[in-house]
Nucleic acid binder design. Structure first.
Lengths: 227, 227
DNA sequence: TTAGTGAATAATCAATAAATTATTCACTAA
DNA sequence: TTAGTGAATAATTTATTGATTATTCACTAA
């Protein structure tokens, strides 16, 4: 076997860990398992990661980045209005995180382990989520479609008001369609709070956007779509 | 010792359990402990409760009713506007549940045990919470202060959007002042979504209402205020 | 009949020992 | 020097066993 650059070895470890963690879970995966998968000794793992938990942190970090990417991909789609953009992002968030917990239950376990050991991790993930909202509100403000005097405050509000609809299974055991209906009501309220009324008529209700499934089904299995 | 009516005995058990649960926690309290506190045999407890968990359920049910009562007491205060009423209720909810988890940490444990054994319990508690919102929205609709075409839908939306601010410590480790500021932003958004704009000017921001502490501090210690 | 007992049993918990696993480090090969 | 080893040790986890506890029920007293 030829010499292997540090980067590739590190990736091999992460790959092995991803498979083991998602299949057997973090606690049941041993460093010896990973070493064997990578055809190396346990000691060598520690040249690439300070400890077992750090492998989990790296995987969770990438998972969180992927989630934001999935949602940001929605941002790149051309839409009629900023309102529609906002709605699509919020629904994508609900659906992506819902399917994630449903299809990859070990992901939740991993996230909980990481957060309980590294509280900072959660804070950073939340911050990343919020940046997406901030971007949309900024766009709506610039175009005049939204009437927001204070974008950072509105971002916090939007993020807080939609908390229940990210990783919803943590809070409730409602079904996805139930949550979608509920989120539509929430968005109606929020959008009315953001947009000026036209001729005294209230802004129309939010409708549940179509579900473009392939995007996050692919992502949740870790398959990258072609560039 | 004289004969004792069923009701009084049952209350004695509940009282003993409340004390033990809040002091030592549910798992460390034994039926024998409760029996001793009530000067009876363990077997007799089972004439009043089907099992240990049912004592916890009864206590949690009353706790939940008290929480709603605390919030409903806010409803009875005369205020200038329905908007103010809504804001006071939502903030009272945040503050009451926050202090509850902070001062009586065993309450959380108890609630989690009860919910994990009786999922229906949570559903009913949520329904009760929502009824309070429904009443307010109905009032606002009747008076014309709120522009809600669909009160049940708006109720669901309001409840969902404020989820993070009930028992907030379950979701975040932000401080109460931080949560209050955040909730004010959320309420600004929601209230703007509910109220018609006047002369094109947006509805002014929500301000954090004063904290009338005695109400829920009393309640959380189980002291009833004089009628 | 009603209110209650307390020993018997089944279920759960806690403590300890045994085994496994994470992590370190002195070492080797290229 | 860089990439890697694997045995030694420290930390955790798992099994096992001996309490402890929940629950039942045949029974008693008023």
């Amino acid at each position: 076997m030829g010499v292997m650059s540090e980067e590739t070895t590190r990736e091999k470890i992460i790959d092995a860990a991803r498979q083991r963690f998602s299949h057997y879970g973090y606690p049941k995966t041993t460093i010896a398992d990973l070493a064997e998968d990578c055809a190396m000794s346990p000691g060598n793992i520690y040249r690439f990661f300070k400890g077992k938990i750090d492998i989990a942190v790296e995987i969770a970090r990438r998972e969180a980045l992927t989630a934001v990417e999935v949602v940001e991909r929605v941002l790149d789609c051309p839409v009629r209005s900023t309102r529609q953009r906002l709605e699509e992002v919020v629904f994508a968030d609900l659906r992506y995180t819902f399917h994630l917990l449903e299809n990859q239950p070990k992901t939740l376990e991993l996230a909980q382990i990481v957060v309980s050991d590294r509280p900072q991790f959660q804070i950073e993930s939340l911050r990343r989520e919020r940046r997406v909202f901030q971007r949309i509100l900024h766009e709506g403000h610039a175009s005049g479609e939204f009437m927001v005097s204070n974008v950072p405050a509105a971002t916090i509000a939007l993020h807080g008001a939609t908390t229940k609809y990210r990783y919803a299974q943590l809070f409730t055991n409602q079904t996805l369609p139930e949550l979608e209906r509920e989120l539509a009501h929430v968005m109606t309220l929020i959008v009315r709070g953001l947009m000026p009324t036209v001729e005294g008529r209230p802004v129309p209700e939010t409708e549940i956007p179509a579900d473009d499934k392939h995007a996050y089904i692919d992502a949740s299995v870790g398959v990258k779509s072609a560039p």
